[in-house]
């Protein structure tokens, strides 16, 4: 009787253990605000993150199986891209915007330079179906993933059964991207009192707080709102940003404020990648502002900086580079999963 009881208990424990997913706790510093992503609707688990990572690096998401998310959002560029000023899609097609860096996404409510996307889960649908990016029908992506041998197992591990649905695919992609937290720069070291700024960096920090922090607010280094920062209109693109989406005059030429973290890895800068060097960006703010109706009031007369202040500011901005994030092996291409059955050529 006793033995039977023990056996049944052991069986029960094994069964329940196999049902339990390995919960993942998103780690971020105590000086960060609370994330805005609703984790209750998409609880992080190691298995779902791993599925999301495989999907992120798998070119199966594109029409001709040539472009993955990572093609334009490379881990070594803090998940941005440095070869092209504008995003580069299937069949060498060129898009209209500079691929933004991906990190600290759990603190953002709207996505894309123009804010067209209202939730991280839905973001991937845009590049997947854009004719100049992945050019694929989402329904077909789901069908291709059902047929690729590695995925039934990954879906089973993540969701308890191997059913592939659009919802699961999108949520798994969100999970991986949510784990891309950049909080390991020298600036973060100073915050955590494990590092110290040099005199020049301290001077640059003071300049930053005075002139930049209103929009590029620390510690995320963006409010993630939308502003017109006085860029001249590129007549080859005629991109009016948020105004195109909302069709409101007050939103014309407004673009999402990017974070200043990882600037060394994420050039070129601006929504159209027009500046390749940080110096050019700073010079834009001091002497290149174009006045239009929706220009942010703070920039009306440009930002006044001495040459010394510019150099100090640059020194501070470089303390926002997060090597630990950029070279984190957990964020890299999942060789073990994707290489054994590379591509869908076998199908």
């Amino acid at each position: 009787m006793k033995i039977k009881l023990i056996i049944s208990m052991v069986v029960l424990i094994i069964c329940s253990a196999s049902m339990l997913q390995d919960k993942y706790e998103l780690l971020y510093p105590n000086y960060f605000p609370s994330p805005v992503y609703d984790f209750e609707k998409n609880e992080l688990t190691t298995e779902k993150i791993e599925l999301g990572r495989a999907l992120f690096y798998d070119p199966i998401l594109s029409k001709d199986n040539s472009i993955s998310c990572a093609s334009c959002h490379s881990p070594y560029n803090a998940f941005a891209h440095t070869d092209h000023d504008l995003s580069h899609g299937i069949e060498d097609k060129i898009g209209i915007r500079n691929a933004p860096a991906l990190f600290n996404l759990a603190w953002q409510t709207t996505f894309m330079w123009d804010g067209a996307i209202n939730h991280l889960d839905m973001q991937a649908l845009a590049p997947i179906s854009s004719p100049t990016e992945m050019g694929e029908d989402f329904k077909n992506v789901v069908e291709k993933i059902k047929r690729k041998p590695i995925y039934p197992k990954l879906f089973f591990q993540a969701y308890g059964d191997s059913l592939v649905t659009g919802e699961r695919l999108l949520k798994a992609l969100s999970q991986f991207q949510l784990t891309l937290v950049s909080a390991g720069s020298k600036y973060d070291g100073v915050k955590k009192e494990t590092a110290e700024f040099s005199d020049q960096e301290t001077a640059g920090y003071i300049t930053f707080l005075k002139h930049c922090n209103a929009c590029h607010r620390e510690p995320l280094f963006s409010t993630y709102q939308f502003k017109n920062n006085g860029l001249s209109i590129d007549s080859s693109l005629n991109d009016f940003g948020k105004g195109v989406i909302t069709q409101k005059a007050k939103d014309s030429l407004l673009f999402k404020i990017p974070s200043l973290r990882n600037l060394s890895y994420t050039y070129p800068y601006m929504h159209d990648g027009r500046f390749r060097k940080l110096k050019e960006v700073i010079n834009h703010y001091t002497s290149g502002i174009q006045e239009t109706a929706t220009l942010d009031v703070r920039l009306k007369n440009g930002i006044s900086l001495t040459e010394n202040e510019k150099v100090d500011l640059l020194a501070f901005l470089l303390t926002l580079d997060d090597k630990n994030f950029v070279f984190n092996p957990k964020n890299k291409f999942p060789k073990k999963i994707l290489l054994p059955s590379e591509g869908i050529m076998n199908n």
């Binding site: 996307i117 939730h119 989402f138 789901v142």
Partner: peptide, 24 residues
Amino acid sequence: TNVSGAMGDDLDPVNGMYWTWQSG
């Protein structure tokens, strides 16, 4: 529902009833 992220069943974006370039 329009701003609550990915949904399943009838609301799954595979049904072709979700705009991709602009959420909704």
